[in-house]
Amino acid sequence: MGLIKEFKDFAVRGNMVDLAVAVIIGGAFGNIVSSLVNDIIMPPIGLLVGGVDFKDLMVVLKEAYVDPSGQEINAVTLNYGNFIQFLVDFTIIAFAVFMIVKLINNLKRKEEAAKTPPPPTVNKQEVLLEEIRDLLKQQGGTP
């Protein structure tokens, strides 16, 4: 029973729940960014470079052919366009995460700055009493 209880404690710990939520939101965020890149950013870039769709960019290493038995053998290609697409996706996601972390850090700094109490104000009587004490010390009197 100890192993089951330990697993239950591990599985329902706050950090695990936070991690699960982060993974789910991250997946949805990835889909949003992929749509942003594929549907909004890449079409104008494709037009700028002559109507090229980056997903179609490839180098054919071996052409497709039909073998003697009549079976079609697919071409072997190096799909560098997909790689470019994923680089653009990654860059946008990384920048978005950076901006979110930067925003959170700024909010934390502001919150910490607001928490620090202002320096205590000094009473004029206390200052005068301290000066009198210091003068008495200098004269050899008792404080």
Rank of each mutant, 00 (worst) to 15 (best):
107 L>F: 08
127 V>R: 11
63 E>K: 11
55 K>G: 11
119 P>K: 08
44 P>S: 04
111 E>K: 13
93 I>C: 07
40 I>T: 14
31 N>M: 14
14 G>V: 12
25 I>M: 03
108 K>D: 04
13 R>W: 10
71 Q>A: 10
59 V>Q: 02
128 L>M: 04
5 K>L: 15
35 S>C: 08
29 F>K: 01
108 K>R: 11
60 V>S: 09
26 G>Y: 05
131 E>T: 10
16 M>C: 10
101 V>D: 08
141 G>H: 09
50 G>N: 00
46 G>N: 00
83 F>I: 15
61 L>P: 05
100 I>C: 04
23 V>R: 05
118 P>N: 10
19 L>G: 01
21 V>C: 03
104 I>S: 03
118 P>T: 12
33 V>F: 09
57 L>M: 15
95 F>M: 06
11 A>W: 10
74 N>T: 09
122 V>C: 01
52 V>L: 11
87 L>A: 14
31 N>L: 15
112 E>M: 15
98 F>C: 06
39 D>M: 11
5 K>I: 14
89 D>W: 10
16 M>L: 12
5 K>N: 12
76 V>C: 01
89 D>G: 05
43 P>R: 05
132 I>K: 06
115 K>V: 09
56 D>F: 08
41 I>P: 01
48 L>C: 05
18 D>F: 11
48 L>Q: 04
99 M>Q: 11
142 T>N: 09
130 E>C: 02
54 F>E: 00
120 P>E: 12
125 Q>A: 12
135 L>S: 01
127 V>D: 08
134 D>W: 00
31 N>V: 11
47 L>W: 08
142 T>S: 09
106 N>P: 02
101 V>M: 11
39 D>C: 08
126 E>V: 10
138 Q>G: 04
7 F>E: 08
33 V>D: 06
130 E>L: 01
24 I>T: 03
124 K>D: 13
67 D>E: 15
7 F>A: 12
131 E>M: 14
45 I>T: 02
55 K>Y: 12
39 D>R: 13
27 G>E: 05
89 D>Q: 13
79 N>I: 11
115 K>E: 14
102 K>R: 15
77 T>N: 02
77 T>R: 02
125 Q>K: 13
62 K>N: 07
105 N>C: 08
125 Q>V: 13
124 K>E: 14
114 A>H: 08
20 A>N: 06
74 N>L: 10
7 F>T: 12
18 D>Y: 10
84 I>P: 01
117 P>E: 13
97 V>W: 03
134 D>Q: 05
82 N>E: 14
33 V>I: 15
134 D>F: 00
132 I>W: 04
3 L>C: 07
25 I>Y: 00
68 P>E: 02
133 R>K: 15
131 E>K: 13
3 L>Q: 11
99 M>L: 15
2 G>W: 08
64 A>P: 03
43 P>N: 06
88 V>T: 05
70 G>C: 04
38 N>C: 07
87 L>N: 11
108 K>S: 05
